[in-house]
């Protein structure tokens, strides 16, 4: 069983829902990323999505775009991200890490070389935003052969027949994008999301995470009531953006703890 599967299984056993915060690796500075990851875990994260900085983040809104730009100032690329996770793993062998990024840095490294390096670094899942299942069959097989879960997005416009195609290739969990648009666009409509999640649940046994638009504890609580995991991205990155080098870790912990409490309440 992969670390991701383990995590969801034990949460289910405990009757709890997963909190998945997202931060961009290298934002605000690569020297702080590992400490930030540990802090997120300490404050209640069950799994962490780590963004790989890319020069052209087409699916991201301005908040996560700026995070990418801040990290790129320090030349944080895929190799550096893998090194950071490897460092994190020295003290944490339990919390799953899912990389979220775009295809080009992976292709630049070479897909097979990347799959090996990801395994070696202790990565648990890969969400490649611009690799739809039709274009990534071989890559997904490579990941699975190394016990890494390929994670996929499902969107409000994804038709039922296509959900089948996607969940066939996905493992670990699926990530339902709760609104049309880029990351962090607007507030989600919980009734609509509940409806969609129920439909997806009829098509797969994989845990379902919901994200894009979870911007406060109240929304996190509402999402936790209907999904298996709550993904909080832009709101976390905003916290990084408005913090200083000195208080970014404590601020992230406070926000994570607040979300954790709301989800568990």
């Amino acid at each position: 069983m992969s670390r991701i599967q383990n995590t969801f299984a034990s949460l289910k056993h405990a009757g709890k829902k997963a909190l998945i915060p997202f931060i961009t690796a290298g934002d605000p500075h690569p020297d702080q990323t590992v400490a930030m990851l540990h802090a997120l875990v300490k404050a209640g994260a069950d799994l962490i999505e780590l963004g790989v900085p890319f020069s052209d983040p087409m699916a991201d809104g301005p908040v996560i775009q700026r995070a990418s730009e801040r990290a790129l100032v320090h030349k944080v690329g895929l190799r550096k991200v893998l090194a950071l996770v490897k460092e994190f793993r020295q003290q944490d062998n339990k919390t799953p890490i899912v990389l979220m990024g775009y295809a080009n840095p992976i292709e630049a490294m070479g897909v097979e070389k990347f799959a090996d390096a990801a395994k070696d670094a202790g990565i648990d899942g890969i969400l490649t935003v611009d690799y739809p299942p039709e274009e990534s069959t071989e890559f997904n097989a490579m990941l699975k052969a190394r016990d890494i879960d390929p994670v996929f997005l499902l969107s409000p416009t994804t038709e039922a027949s296509r959900v089948d195609i996607i969940v066939n290739q996905a493992s670990g969990f699926v990530y339902y994008v709760s609104l049309k648009g880029v990351t962090g666009s607007k507030n989600l409509d919980i009734v609509e999301v509940a409806d969609r999640v129920a439909t997806i649940r009829s098509q797969t046994n994989l845990p379902i995470g919901v994200g894009f638009g979870v911007r406060d504890a109240q929304t996190a609580k509402a999402v936790a009531a209907i999904a298996d995991a709550v993904v909080v991205g832009s709101r976390m990155v905003q916290e990084v953006e408005k913090s200083t080098v000195d208080n970014v870790v404590t601020n992230l912990m406070a926000l994570t703890a607040e979300l954790r409490a709301a989800i568990d309440a």
């Binding site: 087409m58 699916a59 295809a103 935003v129 611009d130 690799y131 739809p132 039709e134 274009e135 996929f152 997005l153 499902l154 969107s155 416009t157 994804t158 038709e159 296509r162 996607i166 994008v177 049309k180 648009g181």
Partner: peptide, 11 residues
Amino acid sequence: GIFVAETLVEA
């Protein structure tokens, strides 16, 4: 090919 986020696939 078609290398886009899932949100664009149906469009």
